[in-house]
Design a protein around this nucleic acid. Structure first.
Lengths: 229, 229
DNA sequence: CCAAAAGTGTTGGAACTACACCCATGA
DNA sequence: TCATGGGTGTAGTTCCAACACTTTTGG
């Protein structure tokens, strides 16, 4: 079947930078392309947008299809638009404009499975990335910057997203490690604890971790943003 | 001539929110659509992207074509990408994904002329907007937010863009009025002057305005960002 | 001399930084 | 009892907000 237009149309894709924190290091999910162009290269998961779906839904679907993330794993995860990339020639096949998204997946539920279009799907440390297909290195750089900005600038509803990295019940030390990993710099423990408790509305679950051979830690959950800006 | 593809392709457009400050009020340039859909409605200038041009160049070209802004008027102006809008059904003709841009034009050199596709081109105060075609009201809201964020958050190279509103040589009072207009709130004079002089690298031109029937004001020019964050 | 905008310092509060020791648990 | 991470307060500094009067010019 063919589709005909009076004027030339570009193709439109979505690409998704899926971040997670694994062993205290920021990781991103990449797939190895099973088809040309860039067959064998690593790339961000993504693909063509269907005509009847919104951009963000296309991103979700492609992520499910290519990295084998099941829809319920994506449920409730924040998808943030980073921008559109449309340099002519960025795809050797035809004019392709891509809309890039960013998402964060929890430290715990994480499973990548190669499937359609992808030979493999794996986590890579941000410090040790392979060469990427298309202009995905640029996109990933912007995604990394957007992520940092989420925690460094003023508190917004969006910034809540960073807590997706944590399990629902978390300790302040886990939270601290997450912020340190995202910002790429160590934070002072007492100051961090003061800061997070004044800026975020944390619920004290009155529970403690158990099992470590050290003092148990109090568990918290995120309620929402604190009232004062 | 017809263009045929194996899979359906959406159309891709750019839309541009052109802001200026006129008589101390934030204005945006709108065109009255000369053709369906939304014939007779006001809309952001914009149009289809050519296959061989980058998104930002498409935005520049469309702005020139539709609002009669000459290329040299656009020279050196910052174009900032706001995001992609692709809700299915946002254009009644076919699937259209638009990439929205934001630009700022100086208080002085400003000329809008209706031309191709546009019955009229006019400046509107942001406080008194007509109903807009497509989802342009949403886009304009985001653009307005992006503009505010430019001045309210930390200093970046991007934030320099706000100085496009000012003539090359400006007084601190003009600068203050501009910041007030963008943020929509009055600023305290002494604090503002201290702030701008510590945060921006202003060159004192050792010149004064003349002609007002009041004390002459010192003229400044923007050099760049100050070293300290 | 009057109107109109330009210019100029100080003080209090809030927010952030730096810093070192004791506690609870499991092995 | 020791190793491991959890938990706590204070003092100095920096940054921001509030606030009112004098200066220079043209008419």
């Amino acid at each position: 079947m063919a589709f005909t237009y009076d004027y030339p149309h570009p193709a439109v894709t979505t690409d998704i930078a899926v971040f997670s924190i694994i062993e205290d290091a920021l990781h991103v999910a990449l797939i190895e392309r099973a088809a040309d162009p860039f067959k064998g290269s690593w790339a961000l998961p993504g693909g063509f947008v269907n005509m009847d779906e919104d951009l963000i839904d296309g991103a979700r679907r492609e992520l499910a299809e290519e990295a084998g993330v099941t829809p319920d794993q994506l449920d409730g995860l924040p998808f943030m638009q980073i921008g559109a990339y449309g340099r002519p020639g960025r795809d050797p096949r035809e004019r392709v404009i891509t809309v890039a998204f960013l998402t964060l997946v929890p430290m715990d539920r994480v499973k990548l499975v190669a499937s359609t279009d992808a030979a493999k799907a794996e986590w890579f440390t941000m410090d040790d990335l392979p060469p990427l297909a298309f202009d995905h290195a640029d996109i990933l750089t912007s995604a990394r910057e957007a992520l940092s900005k989420l925690v460094s600038t003023t508190l917004t509803e969006e910034a809540k997203a960073v807590f997706s990295f944590l399990p629902q019940e978390f300790t302040l030390s886990q939270a601290q490690t997450m912020f340190e990993t995202i910002q790429g710099q160590p934070l002072e423990k007492r100051n961090f604890r003061k800061w997070i408790q004044t800026h975020w509305d944390l619920e004290d679950l009155k529970k403690k971790t158990q099992g470590g051979r050290h003092r148990p830690a109090a568990l918290y959950a995120l309620n929402g943003l604190s009232k004062q800006s």
